[in-house]
Design a protein around this nucleic acid. Structure first.
Lengths: 189, 189, 189, 189
DNA sequence: TATGAATGAGTTTTCATTCAT
DNA sequence: GATGAATGAAAACTCATTCAT
């Protein structure tokens, strides 16, 4: 049953978010999910596989969303605005998973996980393609699109921290607007 | 001898950068440094202390540099340009340490280390103050300085990844210019 | 299964008796028990906990026996005789455990273990109460019952050493009689 | 210089008494003595050797005292009284050493140290000889002198604990009298 | 499928001992 | 003699993974 896999992922996300991937024990994931340790190993080969799978799912979700936006004749501005909104909604709905995505995805260089690599390579790549298109039609100014895509991707990814780090409590909307403003001006849109 | 402490930090940085803090064993740090495990414990109380110390040193270095720039009547643009240059020179000189700084500082929310907290709190704070001043004298446009400082801090911090992630090899200068351009435009400077 | 806990205690007793608590390694206990180190930690939180548990069990056994004797209208002489017999039977049956009890309980002053404290405090206390009663009914002469109880407790506790230390092999019965004789005369009974 | 050896023994006694032999580190002994760790190893081959030496010295002191008493035509009562007095004076003067003597001498069976063996074998042996003599001249009643000697030796040795364990504070004199009374009556003197 | 007791390699840390100065 | 930095073997303990039930 894929239900169990989802159950395990949710539990794992909660525990990873709370304790960090390395300090989280498989036992505590099992407890969080109210199942036995052994059961986890029926669905995942290793503890790393759980994290990997979470990344894969979330990555696919975002890629799919981004691609769905592209076919609708929207401007880059509109697409990025939508995407950030989506990101914040996901953030609210699956807070744990998102926290994990950010906390554990730092180094695309070191990871052995294909899904984690995809996450921090394919997504920027998708943005890059969008930038190139926007550049051609003159929506944004001349720029190094690969670097620009990375800048945008990272700015979006880290926006969670901004929400958490700011002393004054701001609404999600305020943060989103500030982030989008920064990005749009940054790319001369 | 403080020489040993430096030696250990260098070895630890190399191993942390290569394997990540959690997967790095004290034994492998000792091997990297060509010393005995016990020796490490003459200079550091725990493995975490090593990371902490690295953060402390690097944080102080950056804070000191940033403050030294402030007293010289430079514009924000000039200061940030200098600071990013400094960051890239440090990056080249102490590649491992910088990698560790970024990889292990992602989650300022969960860490227990004061030095790590300082790093991701004091530095943005310093930038925030600079933004406020620049805003008053009209160097940059109206903005939420706290959020802006975070955006700048994170953009600078993550610029290492951009350097590494881009498929086409770019010179440091090219990356720096792209990053600075993004930031300056982003804050309307 | 409590069987495992008993198995571990037996193995630990054997190793503690052979090597002393401090020199005994958890690994050697595991080997003695023919189980893995990790298994021990499923049943006990720390190595000290094992010793503690042994003390608790043995202490409860003795306290229970002593109290069971008290309700039967026996004289102090009879009670102490029975108790020493019980002690020697236990000694024969669980030689290792008893050795541990004595070897590791010497210093009630420094230990942090509640069970070890109970052992060397509650048991003498029980004897003290018995002495007070015996004094009232004139079975023994006037004396400082607290000190007397300590003297008796220690004499009984150390009687194992006498058995072991004497060059000429004596039967348990002979040792018991000598010890009882010493105690009874010592308290003027 | 033998002075250093004495200095080390005093420091070691203090530390052993405070922390127990096994938990005491050579470094802390060195600190207590205000010397370097290496210096200790100029005078003692191992940490165990220090304990061993302390036992040897104290053992010799007691054996010598006991023998000096024997040549003076005193009764067993007088000798034991003197000896216990001596023991308590030593106890007061070198509290640390005595604590160590008792805490670490529990198991004559397990120790590899000759000095520790001597301590718990020769001293009882000396007492045994005295008992035999006293028996011949009718000072005490018929008894198993070897067992009796052990009983006396252990009672004396453990008297420190009585002093410490009793809730009501008693003077040394009171404890001594109680212990002597117990012993004398116990051996029918 | 589901379980969770058992495993044992691997981790951090300590500390008696050595030896170059 | 005296030092104390350096050593590395060994300790307690953890935890991802397995497998008999």
């Amino acid at each position: 049953m894929e239900d169990k896999k989802v159950l395990i992922c949710k539990a794992a996300s909660a525990v990873f978010a709370r304790e960090g991937f390395h300090k989280a024990s498989v036992k505590s994931i099992a407890q969080e999910a109210n199942i036995a340790v052994g059961t986890i190993y029926l669905y995942f080969k290793t503890k790393e596989d759980i994290l990997d799978y979470i990344f894969k799912i979330e990555h696919e979700k975002r890629i799919a969303y981004l691609r769905s936006l592209q076919g609708q004749g929207m401007t880059l501005r509109e697409i990025l605005t939508k995407f950030l909104e989506f990101h914040f909604i996901e953030l609210a709905e699956h807070e744990n998973i998102n926290r994990v995505l950010i906390q554990e995805s730092t180094s695309p260089l070191r990871t052995t996980s294909d899904s984690m690599k995809s996450f921090s390579i394919e997504l920027p790549n998708e943005i890059k393609k969008m930038l190139e298109t926007a550049q051609i039609i003159g929506e944004i100014e001349e720029m190094d699109c690969e670097v620009g895509a990375q800048l945008i991707f990272q700015t979006i990814r880290n926006s969670v921290f901004i929400a958490k780090a700011s002393n004054l409590r701001r609404t999600d909307k305020q943060i989103q607007d500030a982030v989008l403003g920064f990005i749009f001006k940054g790319i001369g849109s």
